[in-house]
Design a protein around this nucleic acid. Structure first.
Lengths: 124, 124
DNA sequence: CCTCTATGTTGACGTTTTTCGATTCAAGCC
DNA sequence: GGCTTGAATCGAAAAACGTCAACATAGAGG
């Protein structure tokens, strides 16, 4: 359940230039929107934050994530799936449990995009 | 039409710590989700990109934005409103036209949040 | 093999979002 | 004043989303 998803980022989609460098074309915008949409839900944002806060490198067990919410287990599973499809996290089964971790570089790519390279001297 | 909107960021909401520093609490997550949700649409992402790409500092005229899309004028206006409510852009009327610009610091706050402070030695 | 626990998947339902046409508001111009 | 252009607002319809209960699947242990 790790690599057959349709990871949105990690390819050539929105790697480099920065949002303000030049207007995004439609396909770039569509790809990026999927990632931001994945972040656009409080539950997924908290899930991602919990996963990213993992002190160990081994990932966070779903059994730790689910009880932190007033939501049913299928709902949490659904949100985790969306985070996976956005290319933000990945997971692995270890015995009875499933562990999630943040894909390295996933957030950095968004950071690079949002960083204003030098938005012209707006002071003039 | 500039300052009576319900800007989501710019306050104490999600200023500093970083997503991976500690799990977000519910209200932080809710505030941040609104901003990411605003970015989670291809049209808004392109609009923001076009506005951010403004070479001048004077803002981009709506009359330049609208014809770049196969969407009706009210739809573009709606998306611009959402970007405004998310605290990402602001606008001003100048004569017959309305000009939009990116609020300085808006994207930087998101960048700070997404930047992994030091996501533990994941190499181990 | 059967049972039990931990997750993922399916189908349905109510809510939110996206989009449009029609209208309204603002400013410039005759 | 009335006209024309640019942009926001107002409903309404279609699509997408979040959520759950029910079911399916994977592994552990008897």
């Amino acid at each position: 359940m790790s690599k057959q998803e349709l990871e949105v980022i990690g390819q050539d989609a929105a790697c480099c230039p920065g949002l303000a460098a030049a207007p995004l074309d439609e396909s770039q915008a569509a790809d990026l929107a999927k990632v931001f949409k994945a972040l656009g839900d409080p539950v997924r944002l908290r899930l991602l934050s919990m996963i990213a806060s993992d002190g160990e490198g081994g990932g966070v067990c779903v059994c730790e994530l689910t009880p932190a919410f007033d939501l049913s287990q299928p709902t949490i599973s659904h949100h985790l799936k969306l985070l996976r499809q956005a290319g933000l996290v990945d997971c692995e089964r270890r015995g009875t449990w499933v562990y999630y971790w943040v894909l390295p570089g996933a957030l950095d790519r968004l950071t690079a995009l949002l960083t204003t390279p030098r938005t012209a001297g707006a002071g003039a």
